[in-house]
Computed example of a mutant assay.
Amino acid sequence: MTILVGIDGSTPSRSALEWATSRARSLGEGVRLVHVIDDEWGIAGRDVAQQAEDAGADVIESARRAAGVPVEELVLHGSPAWTLAGLAGPDDLVVVGTHKTGFLHGRALGSRSIVVASLAAGSVAVIPDAAVPRTRQSIVVGVAAGSWETAVAFGAAEAERTGEELLLVHCVPEDAPAAVLDDGNRLLGEARRYAAEHSTAAHVRSRISRRAPAVALLDASRSARLLVVAPTRGSVDRAGFLGSVTHAILLNITCPVVIAR
């Protein structure tokens, strides 16, 4: 797995770099630093384009010094989100920062992190702007029918790597009949067994929530080290490639989120 970090010198990208290098360090790996110079700078003229080139070199150099792990540096031209997403293979992890924190309750256009998460072939980690407190604990995984195995496997591996508890959350409607609850409990049982196959050390808990999925997962992960979800595509017409639940989570992010593919 290659860890690609999108950097642009902003506070969110520094948070992404810190998260990615911490993970790489614990795995004994390096990272690939990617800075994409927006082609739109060239429209403004040669001098402005040169300033963008110089600024990009500074961003890369600053990130290299801060990384503390082996790095590969890559400077490209193009649309930042689309170019970064296009670099990732199915087994790669792309790490990006986001300034979107807190509960917005609505759609917001133009978030590069959401574009990357929608388009990348591999898994994507979206890291909120604020630094992650060291007191955060647990790895939370959203378990949705039909699309949970990869998310649970990723979460179990992270729980074993970090020594944190693994919490599996499945959501059903508040007025769901008993049969739906029974199905949910069976699904969580399968997910617990699957998690045990991927981590022999992690302590695994599970619970059913009667709240809306995005609200339940955001609430469960408010003090978590990581939230892992699958890129469900149930509402493509309303929320783009990710599905409405994942889209809402990224708009209202409360902790680092991994969309596991």
Rank of each mutant, 00 (worst) to 15 (best):
V141D: 06
Q51L: 12
S22L: 04
H35A: 08
P213K: 06
K100Q: 09
Y194L: 15
E190Y: 03
V152P: 05
L217M: 06
S138E: 15
A230C: 09
E53H: 11
R207D: 10
H105R: 13
I114Y: 09
V204M: 05
D175Y: 08
V31W: 00
A24W: 12
G28L: 07
D47K: 07
R193D: 15
I43E: 10
D8G: 13
D38K: 04
T150Q: 09
V143L: 10
S13R: 14
F154A: 15
A159W: 08
P70V: 02
G243Q: 10
L33W: 01
V140C: 04
A125V: 05
E72Y: 02
E40Y: 09
I259V: 15
R261L: 06
S209V: 08
F241Y: 05
V229P: 00
R210A: 13
E197M: 03
T83D: 05
D175Q: 14
L217Q: 14
I259E: 04
R238Q: 07
G240K: 00
L76A: 07
A145Q: 12
S244A: 15
S221N: 11
E190N: 13
R112E: 15
P70G: 04
V180E: 14
L250S: 10
L4M: 05
L242A: 13
R261M: 07
V94M: 09
G240V: 03
P70I: 02
A202P: 01
T246K: 09
F103R: 12
A202W: 00
R112P: 00
V172A: 12
E149A: 12
G56E: 06
G42E: 12
L217I: 08
T98K: 08
G110L: 10
A216D: 04
A202S: 06
R261V: 05
D47L: 08
P90T: 02
I127N: 12
H77D: 09
M1V: 13
L251F: 02
S10V: 12
A85K: 03
D237H: 03
V141T: 13
V258R: 14
M1Q: 08
A131P: 05
T162F: 08
E174P: 00
E165H: 11
R211E: 13
L227M: 01
E29S: 13
L27N: 07
Q50F: 01
Q137K: 10
T135E: 15
P256R: 03
S223Y: 11
